[in-house]
Design a protein around this nucleic acid. Structure first.
Length: 182
DNA sequence: GGCAAGATCCTCT
DNA sequence: GAGGATCTTGCCA
């Protein structure tokens, strides 16, 4: 585990989230290695954020959000898709960053096979998760020693744009969606 | 035990 | 641009 990376996850989630842009996410599965550059994220501030899954307290579903920093929270969206978050809060703070989109660096052919299509491989939270081969099995693992690894990204990074979050009905106006413009 | 809503994606018009 | 797929969670009776 990288100390520098772990420190990137410390602090208020709305500050941590843009810091994840430009980092790399890697999975190595039997179906092949894949790696993406993170280009879009959203911050969810646990108990103080009405739009967060953890807002109502801990349940079996969101238990991973209450885990230690760097834990993956993978949940099923609309009964069909998997979406993944990286937990950034410490004990008692179920804050997490939703990974919404990325750019394929390694294994685009593998992603295309997993996605069943050749285009729009990683331009949405459900698509990104599927392209990396991540499912509920990865829920509760960590990005330090689990199937999904967080790695330093190439420098320099591009420009970061903040805008309102997508697909939620509460706290809609908070500009906690961050996009990397290269 | 039933029901409505959800941090989405794809296809068709 | 609109609608359907598909299932888990949480609320209420």
């Amino acid at each position: 585990m990288s100390l520098a990376l772990e420190r990137l996850l410390e602090g208020p989630v709305e500050d941590v989230a843009p810091g994840l842009l430009g980092l790399r996410l890697r999975t190595e599965l039997p179906s092949g290695p894949t790696e993406v550059l993170i280009t879009e994220v959203e911050a969810y501030a646990g108990g103080r954020d009405p739009a967060s899954h953890a807002y109502g307290g801990q349940t079996p579903r969101n238990a991973s959000m209450f885990g230690r920093r760097g834990t993956l929270y993978v949940y099923r969206s609309y009964g069909i898709h998997w979406c993944m978050n990286i937990v950034t809060g410490g004990p008692g703070d179920p804050s997490a960053v939703l990974l919404r989109a990325g750019r394929a660096l390694i294994g685009a052919d593998v992603m295309a096979r997993r996605r069943g299509r050749a285009t729009n491989l990683t331009d949405g939270p459900g698509k990104l998760t599927q392209a990396l081969g991540v499912t509920g099995d990865a829920d509760g693992s960590t990005v330090w020693d689990g199937p999904v690894r967080l790695l330093q990204g190439p420098e320099p990074r591009g420009q970061i744009i903040a805008s309102p979050r997508v697909g939620i009905s509460k706290a809609v106006a908070w500009p906690w969606r961050f996009v990397l413009v290269e």
